[in-house]
Simulated assay, not measured.
Amino acid sequence: MARNKYPEETKKKILEVARELFYIKGYDNTTIQDIVDNLGGLTKGVIYHHFKSKQDILEKVMESLGVSDEQSNWYDNWQGETGLEKIKLQILKSFQNFERYAILYSAEALLESPRLIGDVYLSTLNESANYLKVYIDEGIKDGSISTQYSKELSEFISLMMNMWLGLNIISFSRQELEERLYFLKNLLESINIPLIDDSIISATLRLHDYIQKRK
């Protein structure tokens, strides 16, 4: 087989095709062969040269959907005037990304995997919380966030958004989700962290409605 002169272009093409198929057919209903059939002559060997598995492809698709054109990583260049505003806008932006969540929740079997849940938990504590802490520290410095516990707060918010809410949105009824959101809003406000507002609650409920209609 001739050596691929443009490996990054090939990898990008695989992710584009997989992203479209995962969104239209769902992750569980898409096979590696489906991806191959839409790659214009490429083989399974090429896919496995770039990715370890279908799950690996999903993870890379999810990463790409979490990054805007202005960012090299999801945690870079958050928009806003203060640390608190940057975090709020990033949460809002996340829950407005319907395509990303539609693909995630189409991987129903994967989401029930204890190993995946454990991986998300560790990633949340070891990565997401550390990146969030940068913006919490910025908020402390500019006065928009008042706390002596930036590390603990970053871990708490990350776990609540990624696991207590994020992985479970489709398992709740609309009323249950709304109650969770207002509980979290009131809890954070009780410690002077007005992070969850009505725009975030509305966006999350719209996301829930959208995902339920696709099922």
Rank of each mutant, 00 (worst) to 15 (best):
M1T: 15
R3Y: 08
N4D: 14
K5H: 12
Y6K: 06
E9N: 08
T10H: 06
T10G: 10
T10I: 09
K11T: 11
K11V: 09
K13I: 04
L15P: 04
V17E: 02
V17R: 02
A18Y: 00
A18H: 03
L21K: 12
I24M: 13
K25R: 13
Y27E: 06
D28L: 07
D28I: 06
T31A: 09
Q33T: 13
I35C: 12
D37C: 01
D37Y: 06
N38P: 10
G40F: 04
G41E: 03
G45L: 00
G45H: 01
V46C: 08
V46R: 09
Y48H: 11
F51W: 03
F51T: 04
K54V: 14
V61R: 04
M62L: 15
M62V: 08
E63I: 13
E63A: 09
V67E: 01
S68D: 08
E70R: 12
Q71W: 02
S72F: 07
N73S: 11
D76C: 07
D76S: 11
W78F: 11
G80H: 05
T82F: 02
E85C: 01
K86P: 00
K86Q: 02
I87R: 05
L89W: 03
L89C: 03
L89H: 03
I91F: 00
I91P: 08
I91M: 07
L92V: 12
L92C: 12
F95L: 07
F98E: 15
I103F: 09
L104N: 10
A107Y: 03
A109F: 08
L110R: 02
I117Y: 11
G118H: 12
G118L: 05
Y121D: 15
T124V: 09
L125I: 14
E127Y: 13
S128V: 15
S128M: 10
L132V: 08
K133S: 09
Y135Q: 02
I136V: 14
D137I: 02
I140W: 06
I140T: 08
K141W: 05
S144K: 15
S144L: 10
S146W: 00
T147H: 08
S150A: 12
M163H: 10
L165Q: 00
G166C: 04
L167R: 07
I169C: 11
I169S: 01
I170F: 04
I170K: 14
S171H: 10
S173T: 15
Q175W: 07
E176G: 14
E176T: 00
E176P: 06
E178H: 04
E178G: 03
L181T: 05
F183V: 05
K185C: 07
L187Y: 12
L187Q: 09
I191R: 07
I193R: 06
L195F: 04
L205E: 08
L205A: 04
R206F: 07
H208W: 15
H208P: 06
Y210T: 09
I211A: 01
R214L: 12
K215T: 13
K215N: 14
